[in-house]
Amino acid sequence: MSAASVPGVPGYRAGPAERAAGWLRALAVFVIIAAILLPIFWIVLTAFKVPRDVYTLDAALWFAPTLENLRTVFEHPWNLGSKIVNSVLVASGTVLLAIPMATMAAYAFARFEFRGKQALFLVVIASQFIPAAVIVLPYFLMFKQAGMLDTRSALVLVNLSIVLPYAVWMIKGFIDAVPVEMEESAMVDGASRARVITEIVVPAALPGIITAAVFGFTLTWNEFLFALIISKQDALTLPIGLIGFRTDRGDLWELMAAGGILITAPMFVVSLLVHRQFIGSLTAGAVR
């Protein structure tokens, strides 16, 4: 029929330069992974060291691990337990308020045409760019007068200012991707607008809504400046709890590391659970 068959001849033989380049790339990727993981790894190790092992590099990797630090941070005067409670309440309160409002607004932006829509949407997006100091200054003064300083509700309110715009934008992106025919066929079948939203749009955009919720939770959970200014004692959150380990006796690194694990681990877990949608929606805005 045609040329004689040459069975078993390798289809591609990489040359030495190509192989070297491959190794270099692998090495570079390894360096990237190490740059991400080593600092985290070192913090985790430190959390399980007794102070004597923290203040020397001789016990860098070989030491007798202890759970003492993870216990101590929950005791007086650190009381990370109450700070965890505050962080959970503030973050979930913010998300629970923000997500329904953001979903409604995102739906309106995605599906309705009305005058000034573009301008309103741009204002919502641009409001992320207002520096935190500008937002917190008036509210610090107002909360002070209203006696709301050092309350969790005050923190929820100011955190809404950062979470809402992100959530509106993210959820709008997901609603845009829901085919409008789905809604139209539901309406033809006799569903009201409210039922269309709750029974068609929300379930279809649920991965996006969950991603926005996770993202909003993360932002609030890690939020530092608002908490630093507004909370004093009762409403202290975890990030502020961390700087409490900077004492007159010096920095208590092993306790900071233990606190660091507590603040970081939940975020790692949830973000890895939703990492696919997370990466997709975080990058979608910039590249569309």
Binding site: N222, F224, P239, L242, G260, M267, F268
Partner: peptide, 8 residues
Amino acid sequence: PFVMSPAL
């Protein structure tokens, strides 16, 4: 790194 607390 992105979901880690900047304070930490």
